[in-house]
Amino acid sequence: MPQKGELILDVRDLHAKVAGKQILNGLTLQVRAGEVHAIMGPNGSGKSTLAGVLAGRGEYEVVSGSVTYLGQDLLALPAEERARAGVFLAFQYPVEIPGVNNVYLLKAALNALRKHRGQPEVDAFEFLGLVREKMKLMQMDESFLNRGVNEGFSGGEKKRNEVLQMTVLEPVLALLDETDSGLDIDALKVVSTGVNSLRGEGRAIVMVTHYQRLLDYIVPDQVHVLAGGRILKSGGKDLALELERRGYDWVRQEAAAA
């Protein structure tokens, strides 16, 4: 586990394409252990693309730039190895996988991590205890365990399930893509509790959001504005409040003037 302040993620001048279209245009971002970063920005600006590139989604093509994760070249690793090394993506739109059992996937995912770290497989009893505890935290009914992955889950239930997985897998770098979208007021608090439970010296959280309200519950160390495939401005929590008031145009204008 990294030490507090250690550089976990170092993205430099990243350019990426999808379906022949340039989406990320020189994105630079550094995230250190113990930090929480919020990324905000207009629709279509490339936030999910960034999350996808970091998690190893196949359809994105990195044209130039680099991503270093705990000192290693993240882009050289296939998706499953990134996950095993501690990168976790909570999807904006979690996919339904009927026929693959939810709790089974969770166990297989945990065992993949443990195997990578040279640990033995998790004991079945211990695992169930762990999952029950985390489900309580997420206020999820145990019936969700034996359903297909996200199968027939409501929008909010899918998001809760993503955070449940995250709390069980305890990633070093958690990427949350609009995990707060579609949550009711109570669910937002529950999910925030789940995310906050993971905050710690050796971890980092990068969360994409459109709403500054989330940041009342999960207070970020830094807020970034991503527009046109680049980080145009960074600041503290106050920046989110200002964005809420003024929108994004002024940031674009400021950047253009600079």
């Binding site: 996919v95 693959v100 993949a112």
Partner: peptide
């Protein structure tokens, strides 16, 4: 591909992921 990537993003081996989806 979306389902496949979801499983990979959870650390599941690609061959296992394909097998699981086919089995499902």
């Amino acid at each position: 591909p979306q389902q496949l990537f979801y499983l990979l993003s959870r650390g599941i081996d690609p061959a296992v992921a394909r097998g699981l989806l086919t089995f499902a």
